[in-house]
């Protein structure tokens, strides 16, 4: 394991104003995730898990503190996150509870789109997308639209899309919530395999206790503060 973490949050806080009161969604959170590591982020609803994921994914700025990728500070309270769109595209992959596939694109097109957005030529993008889907046992579903895929298949297409640009960091928000236990374990096992094979760092926000044994470690959030599992 390299000494420089892929993701590092340093004393991150995130506060919201709600009327006259101040909501502390995250309160001084620091964590590191290294390459090849699959980390589970646990905690009850409202504990700040999703906020943590948004800040780590450069979708929201921290109120204080900083986000570092590969040792480089990429986000602070003053950062214009819209300017990080390209950085996000090439460094971070996202997977959600819902697959969020584009309904009018086929499975292979959903994956290829992520590559074409990154200026990969259409033919090459499609070929690589097909290869990625084949490695996820979806080679026979390339030209199916999302509506024709099962929940598990859709989620695997979403994983393929997240992997398309070979990101160093994969962030997953409740990826198994809509799946049965077998499919849920398969998805976490897939993250495990991706982390091993691609040396990516994977952070998975989950409520699901069925696959905890597949994580390298878990961290627990409670009221915006961190405790280790």
């Amino acid at each position: 394991m390299s000494t420089t973490p892929i993701l590092r949050l340093r004393d991150v806080t995130r506060h919201y104003r709600s009327g006259d009161s101040l909501v502390r969604a995250l309160d001084g959170v620091s964590l590191e995730i290294h390459q090849g590591e699959v980390v589970g982020i646990l905690g009850p609803s409202g504990s700040g898990k999703s906020t943590l994921l948004l800040i780590a994914g450069l979708l929201e700025p921290p109120t204080t503190g900083e986000v570092l990728m590969d040792g480089r500070t990429v986000a602070t309270a003053q950062t214009d996150l819209d300017a990080l769109r390209t950085f996000r595209r090439t460094h971070i992959g996202f997977i959600f509870q819902k697959a969020n596939l584009i309904p009018f694109l086929t499975a292979v097109e959903n994956v290829a789109l992520a590559l074409e957005i990154d200026s990969v030529r259409p033919r090459e993008a499609r070929a690589y997308a097909a290869h990625l889907l084949a490695t996820l046992d979806l080679g026979h579903r390339l030209d199916n639209h999302p509506a024709r895929l099962s929940g598990g298949e859709q989620q695997r297409v979403a994983v393929a899309r997240a992997l398309a640009n070979a990101p160093r960091l994969l962030l997953a928000d409740e990826p198994t919530a809509a799946l049965d236990s077998v499919r849920g374990r398969q998805v976490i096992a897939l993250f495990r395999e991706i982390a091993d094979r691609r040396q990516a760092a994977v952070a998975v926000v989950t409520h699901d206790p069925r696959a905890l044994d597949l994580f390298d470690r878990t961290i627990e959030l409670c009221d915006g503060r961190l405790g280790h599992g």
Binding site: R85, R88, R89, I102, A114, I117, D118, N165
Partner: peptide
């Protein structure tokens, strides 16, 4: 929703 997803995956 799709537009948000496009932005998330880095579409200009």
């Amino acid at each position: 929703h799709e537009i948000a997803m496009l932005k998330l995956i880095g579409a200009e």
